Simulated assay, not measured.
Amino acid sequence: MGIKRYFNDFTALFFAQACAGCDAPLVDGEKHICTSCWYHLPETHAHEDQHNSSARQLWGRVRIEAVASYWYFREASRVKRIIHHLKYRNRPEIGTVIGQRYGAILADAAPFNQADVIVPVPLHPKKLRKRGYNQSMFFAKGLAHSMRLPVVEHGIIRRRATQSQTRKNRYERYENMLETFEANDIGGIAAQHVLLVDDVLTTGATLEACAGTLLENGAAKVSAVTIAKAL
């Protein structure tokens, strides 16, 4: 056991994993994100305010119980770097670690802690094959661990690929998402309070479309959480 620990420490000395937020080498006990970054990441505390800016984005657009995002997303920020590593640098476990942290907070916050199941926003199969994983699913797994909830992985599916949302305005994003999603595991969502999860909230078009699909197919209630909210 001592030799194995020595070997692991020796290996880590030369191949230390870098923090996804600041690129500093991680030390023993740190996973994916260093202690300094955890301390400085800009939390929204949106779970404490049902009238938060994330929730207000969806008012009048879809019947949703509550919306919250863990962090604020700004350009050239630690959060942006973390999301980039999560989505594009083959580090899906970052999503699980974030989900565990946020889930521990949401476990004591109504109405999120009244959810019955967790449903991740799906990727189109073509994008899933290219990336190799759905980052929202890994976030969902972390939340599920801390909140002790089951994940309905294929509660909804994406039936058509959408164009990039990056340069679209709010209405164009909404049109881009029309008829994109459909219910798949209806038995898993019927009569349930669903916690819908995604990575970044921008205009809310994706959450609106997914929540609408869930409600139209028997979900009793929908709440939503994301890792970050774009400013």
Rank of each mutant, 00 (worst) to 15 (best):
F7S: 07
P42T: 01
A20M: 03
S54P: 10
C34D: 00
A20D: 05
I82L: 03
H51F: 03
H40Y: 11
N52C: 02
F15I: 07
R74A: 09
R78E: 03
L58V: 09
A24Y: 01
D23C: 03
G29R: 00
R78Q: 11
S77V: 00
C19N: 03
R56I: 15
E48R: 14
D23W: 03
Y6P: 03
T11W: 11
N52Y: 09
K80Q: 11
G21P: 00
Q17N: 02
F7A: 11
T44K: 06
D9C: 12
H45R: 12
Q50A: 13
I82S: 02
A18D: 11
H84M: 00
C37S: 06
L41A: 06
V67S: 04
S53G: 09
K80N: 08
K31M: 08
Q50N: 12
H45I: 06
A66L: 09
H32F: 09
D23E: 10
T35H: 10
H40M: 04
F73A: 05
R74Y: 08
E48Y: 12
A55Y: 11
G60W: 14
D49A: 12
H84A: 01
A16I: 00
A18L: 15
H85D: 10
L13A: 09
W71D: 06
H45V: 04
P42R: 10
P25I: 11
H47A: 15
R78N: 08
E30V: 00
K87W: 10
Y6E: 14
Q50V: 13
T11Y: 09
D9Q: 12
S54E: 12
K31Q: 14
A24P: 05
Y70W: 08
Y88T: 04
G21W: 01
V79F: 01
A68H: 00
C34R: 01
G21R: 08
I64R: 02
C19R: 03
R56S: 14
G21N: 02
P42K: 07
G29I: 00
K80P: 13
T11A: 12
C22E: 04
F73N: 07
R63W: 10
I82T: 03
H47L: 12
C34V: 08
Q50R: 13
F15A: 12
S36C: 13
Y72L: 10
A46H: 07
V79D: 07
A76G: 02
P42D: 05
C34P: 06
V27Q: 10
L41G: 07
